[in-house]
Amino acid sequence: MYGKYSGKLFTITGEKTSKVTGKKDYDNDPLKFNTDLNVEVDKLNQKILDEIKSIDYNKVRYNETRYNNFKELSFAHDELLEIASLLFKKHGLLGKIISDKFDFILIDEYQDTNEKIVDIFLNSIPKNNKTTIGFFGDSMQGIYDNGIGDVEREIAEKKLIKIEKEDNFRCSDKVIHFINTIRNDGLKQELALKNDETLEDRKGEVKLYYSIYGKKPTNNNSVVDKENYLDTLNKMIAHVSADNPEVKKLMLTNKSISNELGFNILYQIFNDRYTEVKEEIEKTFERIQLIEIYELCSAYKNKNYNFVLAKLKKCGFEINYPGAEPRSIKSQKV
């Protein structure tokens, strides 16, 4: 609590606090320490409230980054979800508007959907509405830690009807058998063939590689712990790749891909600031024309000269043969 207070105080006032009281001193009189800290927290909260009230609320905006900005009173992506939740709870009309506007709302990969958003759709839309809410996904395929994970509680409360998808039109028979073995939700899938597909078309094999590490590090663990975990994981992947050179690796996050392809530092720079990292990297590269340069170099390397010539001509340039008389080109406004 003291650390959170210290950070907020510096953000709001620029004041630095003294080092936090050590455990030995704290244990001598914890009640006094907590009481004094709460008094200071109340003072800071009042300053924050006064600052917010001094700013025109019409200027509050979404800033499209990962961080709230107190000085300009703009909020980040995670806070957008929080604000949406508060608005729907306070103003019942919003739920009615959604209900009147949409007959169906279908949410894909529900297991990675923020819990507050799930709550909006299940609890803020009028009970007598005609809007059908559909959640599609698999609770065992969650990628992100901040998703709802599963909706078993909502199913138990009769807010959702569970429809299990037993037919598997994608995997081979051995993969399906393996998946059924490790699932813990009771679902057992069966091989289902597409039109004109035979059992032979869906044959495959399964190999399980594993490495024992211990407890997986969380966001609160040190950088060293995270690096040790990734090092163990990458060694196992390298071993699998050596044994199976034809195997394609599926990476679930862009961060994993950046580590694999060697631009993890660049990715981290954008990840520390923006929510939509991939889009922000692309926008920046387009702004400094790096993507165009890459496209030109790649086209030239692959002997796609028509692409190169078309790009150059569009920019007002032409390539002449050696010894040919240069031709003038009208300047173009860019």
Rank of each mutant, 00 (worst) to 15 (best):
Y294P: 00
M1N: 09
E64G: 03
V334I: 12
K249A: 03
E286Q: 15
N320K: 15
D36H: 06
L93T: 08
K314C: 01
K90L: 05
K188Q: 10
P322F: 11
A238F: 04
T275C: 04
Q141K: 10
E72G: 02
K43S: 08
Q46N: 11
L37R: 11
I55D: 03
N221T: 09
T11Q: 14
Q268M: 03
P322Q: 09
E279D: 04
E166Y: 03
G134R: 11
Y210G: 07
K165I: 12
D201P: 11
T65E: 01
R287C: 05
I52Y: 05
K23I: 00
I291E: 00
S222K: 11
I257V: 13
E286F: 13
K71T: 11
S328P: 01
N69E: 07
P322T: 05
L296I: 14
N219A: 12
Y274M: 02
N320W: 01
F285K: 13
D150M: 07
G137D: 07
R202K: 15
D167R: 14
H91T: 05
N304H: 10
L266M: 10
K333M: 11
N304S: 15
K89I: 01
L106Q: 05
P217W: 11
V118R: 10
N114R: 14
E205T: 10
N45F: 07
R170W: 03
N195P: 04
F317T: 06
H239E: 10
Q111E: 07
I176M: 06
E280A: 12
I97T: 09
E79A: 11
L187I: 13
L312W: 02
L261T: 00
N68E: 01
S124R: 14
E279T: 10
C315D: 03
E205P: 00
E282V: 12
L191S: 07
T113A: 15
L81W: 02
T181K: 15
